[in-house]
């Protein structure tokens, strides 16, 4: 669990204003230009097989984590099958990515469709909000979490006790039990409150980005 949790997804949305440029500038500052997903996929679609291989390798850890999280109901040995189905779909549909658009919203929507589909066909139904993908965004974006000011502002928009819980668990890395103790709640109640707070926060984040 990183501090980026449910707030970071919106980082990848196209409608994000100035902060996106800041983010990509920072990311690209660290990552060599030719490892940026957009560049890789654009070159892949022009017929550069090596670039496509690197693109698939780059997105695989993210996909693997998403599938593992969703995969409780299935034996883990099927997870790799599902991963391969998603990779195949990325190949088959790669031309539907428009190169003037960011890759991530496209990729997550596609992967979400395939993962849900894969689990459904294996007899378990899952709901997979797109936020789930963002939670496990590649390390590069969790290194650049939501700026402290944004987080504080959003925490200011929910009630004080929930904010304390979120701060303790998501930002300071405490367990729900420890966090509950500090605000005088049982572990169970703390978990419920935390869950609700997270939902409200991601709702807020969504609205802020629209």
């Amino acid at each position: 669990m990183t501090a980026a949790f449910a707030l970071s997804p919106r980082r990848d949305c196209a409608e994000l204003p100035a902060s996106v440029t800041v983010l990509s500038a920072r990311v690209e500052g660290r990552v060599p230009q030719d490892e940026v997903w957009e560049v890789l996929l654009a070159r892949a679609n022009d017929g550069d097989g090596a670039a496509f291989a690197r693109f698939l390798q780059a997105v695989t850890p993210t996909l693997r984590t998403v599938i593992r999280r969703r995969g409780d109901a299935l034996p883990p040995d099927q997870h790799e099958d599902i991963l391969q189905e998603v990779l195949l779909a990325i190949h088959l549909k790669r031309k539907t990515w428009r190169r003037d658009a960011p890759v991530r919203p496209w990729l997550y929507a596609l992967a979400r469709y395939k993962v849900v589909d894969a689990f459904r066909r294996r007899g378990t139904s899952v709901t997979l909000p797109i936020e789930e993908f963002a939670e496990v965004l590649p390390e590069e974006s969790s290194v650049v979490p939501l700026s402290g000011r944004d987080t504080e502002m959003m925490l200011g928009m929910i009630d004080a006790r929930s904010a304390m819980l979120v701060r303790a668990v998501a930002l300071d890395g405490k367990t729900a039990e420890e966090a509950g103790e500090t605000v005088g709640m049982t572990a169970g109640a703390a978990r419920v409150a935390l869950h609700r707070a997270m939902r409200r926060l991601s709702g807020l984040a969504e609205r802020m980005m629209k």
Binding site: G49, A53, R94
Partner: peptide, 18 residues
């Protein structure tokens, strides 16, 4: 086998565009 798949996909022709 996932690595194999990736290698395989990388060599596959680019699919037709919609």
């Amino acid at each position: 086998s996932t690595d194999d798949l990736i290698r395989h996909l990388a060599q596959a022709p680019v699919p037709a565009r919609f």
